[in-house]
């Protein structure tokens, strides 16, 4: 089964690369022109088109690129001729660092808050946690970032407003510099996971077996952690995975505000300049991350639901 899923994953990556290729080719405006901007002349555009291989038909360009990938060669950036693997390496590490940092804070936090909210549903605690997380989730993330910067950085001066790490930044300083972006992301994702935890557990509390457990006199806390939670994993894990994927893939805006050199900014820049090899490489990395996380989620869902393991 695992092999089947993995090959499906590869197929997904292939289809993604085709879609991205088509989408980028369909963008309005000539790629060479976009690269040169307003400063382009007919002559220089023509020369660049040749260099970019735009004088060849699209499918040839695609297969040339695919051939390179299959040999492990991501190619070079059209815009500045740098090796893509080298261009991406450091940024990929940065992206993962920030995602893991935010996940380490937000996932346990969301689970605990969600469990407590389900346990003490409709209490003042439940209501206020809801209001706070809902407000934070419904605020655009760049705005959350601005508010955090204003309070923690400008007014209090505890953390820097720029997370401009470089490859040789020591780990402790890296944590210090990326604290505010990680907090921003935490505020953005925690509400979603917390509410799903709460909803999934409350949904199960009415099930006959929970009723039975309650009738047997098992205390509420134990019912939730030992009886409800294991059966509520499927939707919770799904939401966690969605949010983890988001932490890796969707943080362009946070990267821009904190000047954090991650993959998202690179991808946006490259889309604007039609730097196809870089766009493709970034998208493939994101897609691979996503496929992998998905696989893990599916496996976890099956492991936590015995019925799925042995369908009748």
């Amino acid at each position: 089964m695992l092999i089947q899923r993995l090959s499906l994953g590869l197929l997904t990556l292939f289809v993604v690369s085709v879609i991205i290729f088509l989408a980028v080719s369909m963008l309005p405006g000539d790629a060479a022109q976009a690269m040169l901007g307003q400063a382009a002349t007919e002559e220089t555009v023509e020369a660049l088109r040749k260099r970019m291989g735009l004088d060849q038909p699209p499918y040839i360009r695609y297969f040339t690129w695919l051939g390179g990938i299959l040999q492990g060669d991501f190619g070079t950036s059209i815009a500045n001729g740098r090796e893509i693997s080298e261009l991406l390496g450091g940024r990929f590490v940065n992206t993962i660092h920030l995602a893991v940092f935010a996940a380490v804070i937000s996932v346990p936090l969301a689970l605990i808050l969600g469990l407590l909210a389900a346990l003490y549903r409709n209490s003042i605690y439940d209501r206020s946690v809801n209001v706070v997380t809902l407000s934070s989730i419904s605020t655009p993330e760049f705005f959350v970032a601005y508010i955090l910067i204003l309070l923690v950085s400008v007014k209090l001066g505890w953390f820097p407003s720029l997370a401009n790490v470089s490859p040789d930044t020591p780990f402790a300083e890296r944590l210090y510099k990326t604290f505010l972006p990680a907090m921003t992301l935490t505020l953005v994702v925690v509400a979603h996971m917390m509410r799903m935890t709460r909803a999934a557990i409350i949904n199960l509390l009415a099930s006959p077996y929970i009723e039975m457990a309650a009738l047997k006199g098992i205390n509420r806390r134990r019912i939730i952690t030992h009886h409800a939670l294991p059966n509520a994993w499927a939707p919770i894990v799904n939401v966690i995975v969605l949010n983890l994927a988001y932490l890796i893939v969707g943080v362009v805006v946070v990267e821009v505000v904190f000047v954090y050199p991650g993959l998202g900014q690179l991808l946006v820049d490259s889309v604007q300049r039609r730097d196809l090899p870089v766009v493709q490489a970034c998208c493939l990395i994101f897609a691979a991350t996503y496929v992998l996380l998905n696989l893990i989620a599916d496996i976890l869902s099956i492991l936590t639901n015995p019925r799925l393991l042995h369908p009748k």
Binding site: L8, L11, T12, L13, V15, V16, I19, I20, A23, V24, M26, L27, P28, A245, V249, G250, V252, V253, G264, L267, V268, V271, C283, F286, A287, Y290, V291, N294
Partner: peptide, 22 residues
């Protein structure tokens, strides 16, 4: 499921950006 996998595997914001531009 596989179609959805493909769609979700593409970063949503970037995909939306590409499609809106097109």
């Amino acid at each position: 499921s596989r179609t959805v996998d493909v769609l979700m595997a593409i970063p949503a914001l970037i995909f939306a950006m590409l499609l809106l531009t097109i």
